[in-house]
Each structure stands twice: as C-alpha cells, then as structure tokens.
C-alpha cells in the first residue's frame, strides 16, 4: 500500500494526469475517425526527432548550470556541420555522420567560450544563456549570407550566393536513420527502428558518462560546489565540460531532426527549438539541478505525444483545420506550465 503511494509520489501527479489525458486521446482517436496506427507512428517519429535535443539539457542541469536556454548555440553548431556536409556533397551515412563530425569542432569552440562566460555569471546562467543564444542566432543570420557556400542546392538561385532559409536533405541523407531497419506494417504504420536505436545509444552513452569519475564529479559540482572543491575537483572545469557536452549533443540533436524532417532550417529557426526541449524535460520530472534519462524519455514522449494527438483529435471533432493553431496553443501552454513548476532546491 505504502509502496504504491510512494511510487505514485515519485512519479508525480502532473505526469500521471498528462499520461491519463494522453491515453484518453488515444482512445478517442479511432472514435472520431483518426487512424490509430498512423498516430502512433507519428508520435514515435516525433519522439525520435526531438529526444536528443532534450537529452542535450542533462549535462548542464547535472553540473548546476541549470536549464540550457542557450541551446541555440549547439543547434547552430549542428547547422554548420550539416551545411558543410552538404557543401562537400557527402551522401548517405557518410553525410550524416560527417555532419556530426564536422559540428564537433564548432561545438567545442562555442561550448568552451559559452562555458567560460557562464562561469563568470554563476546564479544567472539561465538568463544570460538565453541572451547568448538569441544574440548568437542573430549574428549567424548575417553569417549565413556571407559564408562562401557554393552548392547550388543550398544558395539562393538568383544571386548565386547566401544560403536559403530552408535546405532540403533529400538526395543526401534524408530519413537515413528513420529508414534504417524500419518495420512497415500496413499502409500507415512505420516503426523507425534506426532512429530510436540511435536515440537509445546516445542516452546510453550519456548515462555511462554520468556514471564515470568525471560524470560523478560533475553531478557533485551541481549538488554542492564547495564540497566538490574540497574534494579536489575543479568546479569551473567540470561546468565547462558540461556546457561543451550540452552544445555538442544539441548539434547532434538538430542533425537527427533534419534527417527526419527533411530540411535544414537556418536563420532564426534555432530559436523556437529551445523552449520545447526545456518544457519536455521539466514535464518529464527533472528539476533545475537534477535530471535523468528517465526524465528525458518520459518528458519527450508526453510532450510530443500531446503535441501530435491533441490537434488531430480536436480537428476531427470540430471538422476544421486548425492543427497549427492548436499545436501552438498546446505547446506554449505546456511550456508555460512547465516553467512555473521548475525548481525545488535544497539549500
């Protein structure tokens, strides 16, 4: 009896309520004429698309830097990697992994500078991070225009230079993970084996890292920096490492997203990717200074599940097409809710 009670408490009421709501939507779907198999396929797909961006938040939360509102930096690193990969006309797995490899040096440079900066503004990481992200995206808006890319698929046709706002990955590495070992059942259901496998491997690697000596030190820095320092740990270095990791995972996350979505979106597109990731991990039960793989998986699933199911079910009920509007309302509603319930820190 007590065990049930405590496990419910551990799981948390908000998550249970959202979970029940999601199940209700799944039950309602066939009744109002939405195909269940297509919906489930859709949810799995979106889960895989976003999961690594959510995972990218874990290292910085653990090291006490809080929620990475500057995740856009990682996304930009990923954009640089993927555009370069296209520029070199790398295709298939070579193109996909090449994009990740090319984004690594950018992630390290951006993450290192961003981390140094955050070490100077302890306690204000989240606000500063958001401004750093926003202003960096603005600078990149200029860079995308002036960088000497030349692949005709990518640059504006009439001018012959300057990158387009959206670039298709079709013909390079479109759905390279999604289609890998994918299982197709019937006309509407596809199980994106490769995508989910890749997400699982990333989660496993981060989990392994968190259990290593450095990962343990990182967690301790987040828990009590003075304790960590007294134990011979260089707290600032650990924080910088966590920022670099978060930035690189953000880069990987956006590349995974692009291969599934089909487009590389440049200019201001990184900005609206950040808040949903943060909302997802909070919904998943993470706090500002503690997050686990379970939080990532549950949070992404609940958030993307709601985002997929609510518009299609409501659309069918009302017989209109307002899916974008409803999606915006649901998404921002959850973000707002998640941000109000962040944080419970022991001092």
């Amino acid at each position: 009896m007590r065990d049930i009670k405590t496990s419910i408490q551990d799981f948390g009421w908000p998550r249970i309520i959202i979970f029940i709501f999601l199940i209700v939507l799944f039950i309602l779907a066939p009744i109002v004429g939405v195909r269940l198999d297509a919906s489930i396929s859709d949810v799995l797909n979106r889960f895989g698309q976003y999961a690594i961006l959510v995972l990218a938040l874990v290292p910085m939360i653990q090291s006490g830097c809080g929620l990475n509102f500057g995740l856009a930096l990682g996304i930009v690193a990923g954009l640089l990697g993927s555009t370069l990969s296209l520029q070199f006309e790398w295709r298939g797995f070579m193109g996909f992994f090449g994009a990740i490899a090319l984004s690594l040096p950018f992630s390290i440079i951006f993450g290192y500078i961003y981390g140094k900066l955050l070490n100077k503004v302890k306690g204000e990481e989240m606000t500063i991070g958001m401004y750093v992200g926003l202003s960096f995206v603005m600078i990149m808006c200029i860079m995308w225009l002036v960088l000497p890319y030349s692949n005709p698929q990518m640059v504006w046709g009439f001018a012959g230079k300057g990158l387009r706002t959206t670039i298709s990955t079709e013909g390079y590495w479109f759905k390279i993970l999604n289609n890998f070992l994918a299982v197709k059942i019937g006309q509407f259901f596809v199980f994106p084996t490769g995508l989910l496998l890749f997400v699982a491997i990333c989660c496993y690697l981060v989990w392994l890292f968190m259990r290593s000596r450095t990962g343990t030190a990182m967690t301790a820095v987040g828990s009590n920096p003075d304790f960590a320092r007294a134990s011979g740990v260089n707290a600032d270095k650990m924080r910088t490492i966590s920022v670099i990791m978060s930035t690189f995972l953000g880069a990987v996350g956006i590349i995974v997203y692009e291969q599934s979505f089909g487009f590389i979106q440049l200019y201001t597109a990184p900005n609206p990717m950040v808040f949903p990731a943060i909302a997802a991990i909070l919904i998943g039960g993470a706090s500002v200074n503690k997050a686990s793989m379970v939080n990532v998986v549950i949070g992404t699933f609940l958030f993307q599940g709601l985002l997929t199911m609510t518009p299609s079910v409501i659309n069918s009920i009302l017989q209109t097409d307002m899916s974008e509007v409803i999606r915006m309302i649901v998404s921002n509603g959850i973000i707002l809710y998640a941000l109000t319930r962040k944080a419970k820190v022991t001092k």
Partner: peptide, 11 residues
Amino acid sequence: VGLLLDESLEW
C-alpha cells in the same frame, strides 16, 4: 562543504 545533502550516503 562537508556534505552532498541531496545525494546518498554512499556518494
């Protein structure tokens, strides 16, 4: 500086 209050005794 002596304790990680939010972690286990093992830690």
